[in-house]
């Protein structure tokens, strides 16, 4: 538990073919990682539209993590390259809108990397905990 009781809420998009398998393996291997991450399975990381990311932040997520297959391993040939470019654009847009781009992270996790999966979840949780809550619901006037 953090000192101030802040528990980050992190949305994790998991690609069906690699990262979800990685998560499965982490479970089978009894890897420990925080429960702050809320996983959403998608068929490919490039299925995650920038709109989903913006909406997650708007609806109360403190961080968003996109995971996909390693470059060259995409089940749909080049989906993860598309994701990579979209995340590049969105990071810049978040920064311009005054939101720390560190709240958005892209990781490649294969289905053989259960250890890496747990490690990334731990790192991401600690990073967001350090950044503090993202309170976008403040109503003005």
């Amino acid at each position: 538990m953090a000192d101030n009781g802040f528990e980050p809420k992190i949305i994790v998009f998991l690609c069906n073919w690699c990262s979800y398998g990685g998560g499965d393996l982490a479970g089978v291997n009894r890897e420990q990682y925080p429960t702050n991450v809320l996983g959403i399975k998608v068929m490919c990381s490039s299925r995650v539209s920038p709109e989903h990311i913006m909406e997650s932040f708007n609806d109360g997520a403190d961080g968003v993590l996109i995971t996909g297959c390693h470059p060259g391993d995409c089940h749909y040939i080049d989906g993860n390259y598309k994701t990579f470019r979209k995340i590049g654009l969105i990071s810049k847009m978040l920064e311009d809108l005054g939101i720390n781009p560190k709240r958005l992270r892209l990781e490649w996790i294969s289905s053989a990397e259960g250890g890496k999966f747990a490690q990334v979840m731990r790192e991401m949780t600690e990073q967001i905990r350090g950044l503090g809550p993202l309170d976008l619901k403040e109503e003005v006037e």
């Binding site: 920038p50 080049d78 990579f84 470019r85 654009l89």
Partner: peptide
Amino acid sequence: DQGARMASALGSVLGAEGEERMDEDEI
């Protein structure tokens, strides 16, 4: 969200040939 839609569209159509052999900085 028009801007997010555009980022999505552009992310899909941008890109060079032979990017499988590039590193992340080049992409």
